[in-house]
Nucleic acid binder design. Structure first.
Lengths: 210, 210
DNA sequence: GGAGTCAGTGAACAGTCGTACGCTGAGTTC
DNA sequence: GAACTCAGCGTACGACTGTTCACTGACTCC
């Protein structure tokens, strides 16, 4: 008994394989250009099908872009879950968080490059899709914060602000890992940890100075 | 006695005017697309000169992009200077800072859109130019912090980290102002102020928890 | 005032692009 | 096993791209 899928004969299987090939070829091409500059022909050429075959899977390049967002943020979601699952004092969690970001970025550089580049890119549907997904992450992060320790007396708005800062920081740090070559990773990581520490310290004394 | 300029007859004047027209027409076009998708022909068409005339001013679209960065970050530099010139307690400065950002973004939306979009865009020379300019701002900000009040015992590295956070926060806030319609401005501003407050509070207790 | 400079012109080039259309042939359904 | 579906193909089209080249004519310099 399959889950959401219907018939799924070899027919559908082959179609899905081609679709996946289109997505990953696009992702590869997007390491060197932005979505708005990506041509439908370039994608099909990379996969080895005729240009018109593209339309069997997507109506548009923006449409493919939105599909890429979903794929990409699946992997990001895994990262968030891993980070939230961390335990220990805040110093340990900060250390592990930055490690996890570095690891995920190194494992899926194309995903993160795409995310960072298109977050403020010129393709509206993709921007919207990314914003929506990051919004979900912020909520998830915020819920985790609310359940946590010392944040009992925080207002909902302040909690959300803090959650947003963590998510933003994550994306920023990912972008920095992408831009620094293999040397400088440690410097970038140290800065990222310090930023997290600063925010954490600020959080500890947030209610003192209200 | 003119400053850096040489002859500057009506000849040069007209050339400069055309160059300026190319830059501002590009900036306008770039509100709806990214630099990598901007065509040389589209730019010249918008200005009303022949496509080939473009080469009298720039060798490339990336080349024009770098020129745009300089123009754009001149205006940003004005904003930074205004922010650093603010006096008063930290709460007043936070309020004024966010006001200044909102005001500058509203006054030069195309400049900021370009900056935010191309910061992680696909045109390398432009990315590099933006990174270099933001680096300068970080240094400026860091120097101002070092001269200030309670940061006597901070290490250089920590000061730089803090300066970087302020610059990053500025860019992020600008991006958010750009994306929220005219309603929601106040909500965005409030969040931006709270983030600044959190960082400030963190800074106040930074040395306590070392 | 004559020689030289050079911002902008206009036609032509080889490519690339997205998309419309009809087709094929393997997989599906009864 | 006959009727049907549909992923992928091939051709063709018009529109648009960046860049070349020789050109003009107003300005600059001596």
């Amino acid at each position: 008994m399959s889950h959401t899928s219907g018939p799924a004969g070899p027919r559908q299987a082959q179609k899905l394989r081609t679709r996946q090939a289109l997505l990953s070829a696009s992702l590869e091409l997007l390491e060197q250009q932005s979505l708005s500059g990506l041509g439908l022909r370039a994608v099909t050429r990379a996969v080895g099908i005729a240009p018109t075959g593209f339309y069997r899977h997507f109506s548009d390049i923006p449409d493919l872009g939105v599909a890429l967002v979903e794929e990409t943020l699946d992997s990001l979601h895994g990262m968030i879950a891993a980070i939230l699952a961390e335990t220990g004092d805040s110093e340990q969690r900060i250390e592990r968080t930055v490690e996890l970001i570095a690891h995920h970025v190194a494992a899926h550089p194309a995903h993160f490059r795409f995310l960072v580049r298109e977050r403020y890119g010129s393709v509206e549907p993709v921007r919207k899709a990314i914003a929506a997904q990051l919004e979900l992450f912020t909520e998830e992060m915020t819920r985790a914060l609310a359940a946590d320790e010392a944040a009992r007396d925080w207002s909902d708005e302040d909690l959300r602000m803090l959650g947003g800062m963590y998510v933003d920081h994550m994306v920023t740090t990912a972008a920095e890992f992408l831009e620094t070559g293999s040397d400088g990773i440690e410097r970038t990581a140290r800065t990222a940890r310090n930023r997290l520490r600063l925010v954490t310290v600020g959080g500890h004394h947030w209610l003192d100075e209200r």
